Simulated scan of single mutants.
Amino acid sequence: MMLLAIEQGNTNTMFAVHNDVEWIAQWRTATEANRTADEYAVWLTQLLHMNGLGFEDLDGCIISSVVPQSIFNLRNLSRRYMNVEPLIVGENAKLGIEVRITKPTEAGADRLVNAIGAHLTYPGDLLLIDSGTATTFDVVAADGAFEGGLIAPGINLSLHALHEAAAKLPRIAIQKPERVIGKDTVQAMQSGVFWGYIALIEGLVDRIKAEWGAPLTVIGTGGVASLFEGATTSIDRFDPDLTIRGLLEIWRRNATKD
């Protein structure tokens, strides 16, 4: 079985290939809601070829997307070029976990996939911090259930808003400043955003732990999570593979269902 896993966030879309033993390729592209199946196919054909693969080698597809208008085109990519019906998180995929929130259907696909990927690897109660377009904090119980959490603006989103709303503030790149007190505008912005996010993470982790009332192992993941390594002790582990691990487990659970 050669599986194509597609994980689509608001900013980037990841395509990964698993050969039933290991992940053998991963690629990312900017998320564009109106990109057609044919456009995806042209791009993906070249990348598959560079790895000695073609669409004819792929016989399974799983899709997780937080961009509903893109699912139609991703589904068509699988149907038209792989000749398989894709498994779609939130539609026809059985997850095998309990979602303990008021409206379970409102839980984002990415958050549930991360919960499954984390529970596979780490014991006990978990707090997952996923840093992307939004920064999510989600609690996963020791039995694997999704307990809910909170959603905050992502660090890139905050930088963009700062630049767009203030005429004199430039667009800057995210990086860890050496000092908290900036000596010019760029340093001040970098410090405010970076250390502000560290303070947000540390403050929310403390509050969540106090409310949960039991030990939590804190796992950092997502596109910009690596920026925070070494800057805070509130995150116990950094794991960039929660999502693809979760997607693979969902595929296996559905492949073996009665």
Rank of each mutant, 00 (worst) to 15 (best):
V113Y: 00
D143T: 07
Q175N: 15
G124F: 05
A161N: 00
G154I: 03
I151F: 04
K257Y: 12
R252G: 06
A30G: 12
E106W: 11
A255C: 10
V193M: 02
E39T: 12
L47F: 10
F55H: 08
E202R: 09
D236I: 01
N114H: 05
S226G: 05
T256M: 12
N12H: 03
T185L: 11
G203V: 11
V205C: 03
S226Y: 05
L242D: 08
T105H: 10
L95P: 10
N73V: 03
I208Y: 12
P123T: 10
W27G: 07
D143Y: 02
E22T: 09
G182Y: 00
I250D: 03
A231K: 08
D143I: 07
V89Y: 09
G117V: 04
Q187S: 07
R35V: 01
A118E: 08
T105F: 01
K176F: 02
A107S: 02
G192L: 02
D206T: 07
I151W: 03
M2F: 15
E32H: 06
I208F: 00
T45Y: 01
A152F: 07
G60Y: 13
I62K: 08
I88Q: 05
P215F: 01
A142C: 00
G60A: 08
G54I: 01
H160Y: 07
A165F: 13
A118P: 00
N12D: 13
D241I: 02
E7F: 06
H160R: 14
A118M: 03
R28G: 12
I198M: 14
T45M: 11
V89H: 02
A33W: 07
E56M: 04
F238Y: 08
G246V: 03
R75H: 09
L248N: 13
T102P: 06
L58Y: 01
K257S: 13
K168M: 10
L120Y: 07
L248D: 12
I62N: 08
L44T: 10
V186P: 06
E56T: 11
R252Y: 05
R79D: 09
A167H: 06
W27A: 02
P86E: 07
R171G: 09
A210E: 13
H18N: 14
N10V: 03
V186T: 11
N156K: 14
P215N: 09
I219W: 14
A152I: 13
D184W: 03
L169D: 01
M14N: 15
V139N: 08
L227S: 09
M1K: 13
I88E: 03
R35L: 02
L47Q: 15
L77W: 01
G192C: 04
L169N: 15
T217D: 09
T31C: 08
T135R: 08
A167N: 03
R245T: 15
T121C: 14
T45R: 13
D143F: 12
L169Q: 02
N83A: 14
L127N: 14
W27M: 15
A210G: 09
R75K: 04
I172T: 14
R75W: 05
S191V: 07
G220D: 13
